[in-house]
Structures are given as C-alpha cells and as structure tokens.
Design a protein around this nucleic acid. Structure first.
Ligand SMILES: [Zn+2]
Ligand SMILES: [Zn+2]
Ligand SMILES: [Zn+2]
Ligand SMILES: [Zn+2]
Lengths: 141, 141
DNA sequence: CACGCAGTTGATACAATATCTCAAAATCAG
DNA sequence: CTGATTTTGAGATATTGTATCAACTGCGTG
C-alpha cells in the first residue's frame, strides 16, 4: 500500500522530483498558512516543526515550487521580502492598498478566455496567473 | 516661467513630494529603461549619470514610486531581486516562462469592467493592475 | 527487502541587497 | 531671498539568499 500524498506533493513527484522530508515540510507549512507568507515566516514555521531542516533547503524548495507554478512570490510592501501565495486552481487575485499595504483577496476572474487566446496566438502553454490591482482600500479612500 | 516636468514627475509633486534631483534621475532612468529593471541596474544607471546620488535615495525613490503606482516590483527568477516595471497607463501584463524565465509582454486587457465592479462592490479606489501569466514559452513547450 | 545511484540535504562561510542614522543640503512657498 | 520642511548621502549595519561539498536519502531495480 503506497503512502498518501497531497495532490501538490504528487505534482512534485510527477515532475520528477523526490518527495523528501524537507520538501514535504515546506509544502505543509505553506498549505496550512493563510497565504501571503514571507520566506522568513516559512523558515520559522519549518524550523518549529523540524529544526534539523536547513535554510538552504527551504529556499530551494520555494524556488522549486515556484517553478512548478504551485506557489508564486509577490511583492506587497518593501521590495525586500516577497510573500508567497499558493495558486490553488492555478490562479490568485488580490488588491493591494498602496497606502496601508492591506491585501484584499477576491475569487472571481474571467481570464480563461484570455489565456486560451494567448496560448493560441503566442504558442505558449500557460499553467496559471496572478492578478493584482493597486489602489486605496475602503479604509484609506 | 516654470520648468517642464514629465507627467510622472507632476504626479509626484501633486502627491505632495518634492521634485529633487535624486528622484528625477531615478525616474528618468526608469523611463528610459525598457522595463523589467532590477534595483541593481537602476543603481548602476543612476550612478553613471550622477555618482553623488546615494544608494539609500534610490531605494527610497523606488518605494515612493511604488506607493504611487507609478512602478511595480515583480518577481521573475531569483527570489533575491525584484524587477521594476513602469505602469504606463496604470497597467502592465506579461507572461513568465517557468522554464527559461523569459518574459513576454502583451498589451491587450479587458480588465476595465472588472476593476469597476470591484470598486463598487468593495468600496475601493483602484489605480492600476498587474497581470502575470505563468507557463512555458514557445521555445520551451 | 537489501542494493546502489542520482538527486538532495545541511552547516557554514559568503555574497548580495536593503535599511538606519543624523548632520548637512536642497526644495519651494511666501 | 528667506525660512520651514523635506530630503539627502555616507557608511555602518541588518537582512536575505547562495555557493560549496561531503554525507545522506528517496526510490527504482532486482
Ligand atoms: Zn488601505
Ligand atoms: Zn484567475
Ligand atoms: Zn521558456
Ligand atoms: Zn490591463
């Protein structure tokens, strides 16, 4: 009986990567976070669960998950630390307040048609997208 | 007779900021770059034009321009350096190849209606957006 | 279920990148 | 021009990510 892995872990394996303890730990931290976590927060959470996992592996895993379009780094406020979001169905959408840096997520998106058109016209194969609006939130208007 | 400034410089002034030499230099570097420049590239270009401008001011200006939705940092490959793009009419769109990290820009976007709907429903005031697709480019398919 | 190899790891030193501090300078309204 | 205020620049410092490489591990094979 083969062990059960999360769908995202399966995607890692299907892409030819090993399901190591370090990778599974990083992935579970990301999955249990509310989204928009910085690398420092991921490092801290990973360390809480298993302090033997090295920093380098955490960064390597974040890069790997990014390459597989499982997560995506975005810049909210400082240019120094990106925050990572999961791309649950391949996409993610939010509004960033340019005054208070609050992030408002929203779900709906009608970008399927645009993606299909781009794929055909530019001969690319798209696996996800991120849509960010900037402006002032209701508190800052 | 008042000096002429670029529309983006005017936006800075209108928002209550001074049009200093450092800020105008950073802005002109960004405007003359092709877009997708890293902070290191901006620093280098600024330094070429006026080596007396300090690093701190360049970073401060990048943050300020970001807050005003004049530019936007995005993450292309390494997690270490964001690249900045101008938001010419408030928006920018590109496709990032998750294999070779090539960036393909495209112009068309039908997000005006979505922006209007979000403004009304969430009581926000939007000033721009960034749309990123991820996938494989034509060379990597 | 042991074997073995390629992929992966972790410790540490290192590199790259951004922020802080504060006296001095520059902007710009009046 | 003058003065109130914002902004600057140098460099030390903090933060964040990478390189190196011997040791280890996942996992296919038999
Ligand atoms: Zn706000
Ligand atoms: Zn979407
Ligand atoms: Zn490519
Ligand atoms: Zn657009």
């Amino acid at each position: 009986m083969s062990e059960e892995f999360s769908p995202r872990a399966q995607r890692l394996r299907d892409a030819g990567h090993k399901l190591t303890h370090a990778r599974l730990t990083v992935l579970s931290v990301l999955e249990e976070s509310g989204g928009h976590v910085t690398s420092a927060e991921v490092l801290e959470q990973v360390n809480e669960r298993d302090s033997t996992i090295g920093r380098a592996s955490v960064f390597r895993t974040l890069d790997l998950l990014t390459a597989l379009s499982i997560i995506r780094p975005t810049f909210i406020h400082t240019s120094l630390t990106p925050t990572y979001v999961l791309l649950p169905d391949g996409h993610h959408h939010h509004i960033i307040c340019t005054n208070c840096n609050r992030v408002i997520e929203f779900e709906e998106c009608g970008l399927g048609a645009m993606a299909a058109e781009l794929e055909q016209r530019l001969h690319v194969k798209l696996s996800g997208h991120l849509l960010e609006f900037y402006g002032l939130c209701d508190r800052c208007c």
